[in-house]
Nucleic acid binder design. Structure first.
Length: 294
DNA sequence: TCTGTATGTCAAA
DNA sequence: TTGACCTACAGAC
């Protein structure tokens, strides 16, 4: 599920299984052959996420910048150091994806690449395959700084400044439903968190950013921080509170995970009004017209 | 075999 | 505001 929480999980995963290791880098598909050659044989220093951007830092002072876009996904495999991290990114089928660890025999090297593998990273202990990214390029530290400078604060970074979010949101007259998706305002939120957080804070998606007062804006920020931190921990987006679910079972069923996202025509979990859907800037926007009146 | 769909972004009109 | 693009898969034909 490539909103910001998935990218942070990836950064954590790359750091834990590949940092300090020399990597073979290749492009089985061929589309990233030149970039792979610049990184092949280098040691991974570490990985970091800012919003939906993933940066892999190599010890020749180059970064691999990856943006998964809609379809991008990583698959992992390897020995026991890779257990528990099999696959992060877009779902293979509708719904959330958490692939079970098969716990099978010892690692014997990566399998033949299946499908369009843009990049394959291989260490002595395991491998990672990247498919379908929107962006996959080698950049310099200066280029990385330029990219970071454009992005808004990332709610998943402990040092992120809420006041920066307040400034960026309250300065604009666009609807808050658009602004939450704008990576220059807030880095990491996508269509699911946008809809869900606006519902949780009872904010109308059409309120202008500058029409929200400081408290409301900070509450939005705090809610994004909380719900995205949960997303990192769970590996999926769950925004409903237990008291708003019909089914108390765990793990939370997909049908109970959201308040409004993809629930058009179904009754609002709070007030029973039918959840509505419309297009906003070519993306589906889901909301409850009755609850979201602030 | 073809179509539709998806948690995203960019450039062109 | 629209179309193009990245990929895989379910479901319809």
């Amino acid at each position: 599920m490539p909103e910001g929480h998935s990218i942070h999980r990836l950064a954590r995963q790359f750091t834990s299984v590949f940092a300090g290791q020399r990597l073979s880098v290749s492009s089985p598909q061929g589309r990233f052959a030149a970039g792979a050659a610049q990184l092949d044989g280098q040691t991974l220093v570490g990985a970091a996420a800012h919003g939906k951007q993933l940066f892999l830092e190599f010890d020749n002072e180059l970064f691999l910048r990856i943006h998964l876009g809609l379809y991008g996904a990583f698959d992992f495999g390897g020995d026991e150091t890779f257990r528990g991290a099999s696959s992060i990114g877009a779902p293979r089928r509708v719904g959330e994806r958490e692939i079970a660890d098969d716990g099978e025999a010892a690692y014997a090297g990566p399998p033949p690449p299946k499908g369009a593998v843009r990049v394959r990273l291989v260490s002595n202990h395991g491998w990672a395959d990247l498919r379908g990214p929107t962006a996959c390029e080698v950049i310099t530290p200066g280029e990385q700084r330029a990219i970071l400078a454009k992005l808004g604060p990332d709610p998943l970074q402990p040092e992120a400044d809420p006041e920066e979010f307040v400034r960026r949101l309250n300065a604009r007259s666009s609807p808050v439903g658009l602004l939450l998706m704008n990576q220059e305002v807030l880095a990491g939120v996508g269509n699911v968190y946008r809809a869900e957080v606006l519902f949780r804070r009872q904010v109308s998606p059409w309120r202008a950013g500058k029409a929200l007062d400081r408290d409301q804006t900070l509450q939005l920020w705090n809610d994004v921080v909380s719900v995205m931190a949960d997303g990192v921990a769970a590996g999926r987006i769950i925004t409903t509170l237990p008291e708003h679910r019909n089914d108390a079972s765990t793990p939370v069923p997909t049908a109970e995970a959201h308040y409004v996202y993809k629930r058009q025509g179904l009754p609002c979990r709070i007030c029973g009004t039918e959840i509505a859907v419309t297009d906003m800037a070519a993306r589906k926007l889901y909301w409850c017209a009755s609850c979201q009146d602030r």
